[in-house]
Design a binder for these strands. Sequence first.
DNA 1: TTGTAAGCGTTATCAC
DNA 2: GTGATAACGCTTACAA
Lengths: 322, 322
Amino acid sequence: MATIKDVAKKAHVSVATVSRVINQKGYVNEETKNMVLDAIQELNYVPNELARSLFQKKSSIIAVLVPHLTNYYFADILQIIEDEIIEKDYRLMVCNIHSIKEKEDKYLKIFDQYNVDGLILIANTHRIEEYKKLDIPMVEIDHKLSEDIPSIISNNYQGGVLAAQKLVDTGCKKIIHFRGPSDLVTVTERSDGFQKVLQENNIFNFSYDLDFLNPDQKDIENVILSNLDSDGVFCDSDIMAVHAIQALKEAGKRVPEDVQVIGFDDIELSTIFRPNITTINQSRSKIAKIAVETLMKLINKEEIEQAHKMIDVHLVERETTK
Amino acid sequence: MATIKDVAKKAHVSVATVSRVINQKGYVNEETKNMVLDAIQELNYVPNELARSLFQKKSSIIAVLVPHLTNYYFADILQIIEDEIIEKDYRLMVCNIHSIKEKEDKYLKIFDQYNVDGLILIANTHRIEEYKKLDIPMVEIDHKLSEDIPSIISNNYQGGVLAAQKLVDTGCKKIIHFRGPSDLVTVTERSDGFQKVLQENNIFNFSYDLDFLNPDQKDIENVILSNLDSDGVFCDSDIMAVHAIQALKEAGKRVPEDVQVIGFDDIELSTIFRPNITTINQSRSKIAKIAVETLMKLINKEEIEQAHKMIDVHLVERETTK
DNA sequence: TTGTAAGCGTTATCAC
DNA sequence: GTGATAACGCTTACAA
């Protein structure tokens, strides 16, 4: 690996001059500049980012904390984040904090040790105060764990409203809501929006709490079977929706003729599965891009006009609704 | 951020001594050691990894190159890799090389600039020579792009054999094979294993090439519809299998009674979808762990007994076969 | 316009 | 046992 010294020697100049040309800072004669450039080319020189980072106390590394990688929603957001930051010449460190305390401990240390320039929290952590103490530019996705940390969250309330409206408009009279864990704000907000519309229309409904990603298939079946007079189902995830539709079919119901189903997230699965699932789309791309954009402003100490952003969701009508 | 100097000052010793205690190298009096430890504690000192890396020309960063993140197979492998390496005190840099030349250019540079300690290639790259020139310890997953680079690959041939055997054993007489792109070695090997068994048993079969992850739904439908006398389908991915099963159902066929279906990968989807999909399981966990293990040996300049490892696959029998 | 030299936070090699 | 000090590869005052 060639260093700046090698380049300097080859170009018959000092390291300072070389530094000036690679950073395009300060004055440097056109002629010497070309000599340096030639030397760089010949030696295949790339500046050592570690040395640079050490001096500047910044690493050009952005760390993203996720709860797991196998979920389409998170994976896609992560993917978009990576695209965005690499374009801005940052690199991505992925930290999978699946509530293993030791790992989070390690990472909390690492962020300091590497002079990580920014943090994007997608994972829900219980140790937000420790993150704040890090004093690193930071944004949150999907959660609002603190007033001081800018957040980017889908308008979950609106999601509930849209789903309810669709179901009401198409004549549903008895509706089941398969929810996520109701201790999450995202979940209660969806619920609130959903409830509001249904209550305004005097539509009977009830909720069951499930895990988002590993909802118990048997639970869903039982609820469906003991409520065969329902004509609408709203699910807090597309995976739940798949289970619900399958349970309905097995119970002899037609979707959407007898029972309509709406999912949440709009993951790949909802267009693979037949009937294609009507669902509430969260704009993953918008969320990821705004997160990066906001983080960059924080890093560059620019003003950010609105700390907590709510992103519109929309209903994607496919084959499980009328 | 406290530095080693601050600690030295506080403990009334030299930085050399502090360095000795944090690295547990060289002799240091028990008493002074405790003073240093106290100072470290009080100042909340963590050694700067960047300075360390600069000196040692190693960064404790492992870069993993993937083709995309939203695929369950890759995401899960990535997740296991992250678990493994963080435990060995390395950090994960995720590089999503979705054949965008500019990104790969940037990353190729970054690996040098950051003194990345190791590379895991999951993505299929056409620029293997450039990677080799990097001269960084490196392993490959799913591909064998070069003799010199250790690889970890599922036994695809065996996968084809197992699927064929199952189909033959349960009486299939006419079989469709929905393949991945046949320019991939993984695909041809599966095909070879599959063919071999079928030919030995004189079973008629034919193949259609599709994209692994975004197989054309219409293509699958058409093939199914124009071969309604088939009684077995082998798919090179579980996603293809879902499409096939759905097409079969729409064509009035029962799975597995009329037609049996076998997928590949054993992703989450195969247990969500009903009927649960019989599939060839690739041991993601084994693959990821061996990859990391091999990489560590390379990094530590230990002998590796077998450069190219083939990992057994196995048939997971679920509801789409008899 | 260019070069010298100090400094970023470590580790390692010497003396003492 | 411990402490100076050079070195890692770079940037940036400050001189020249």
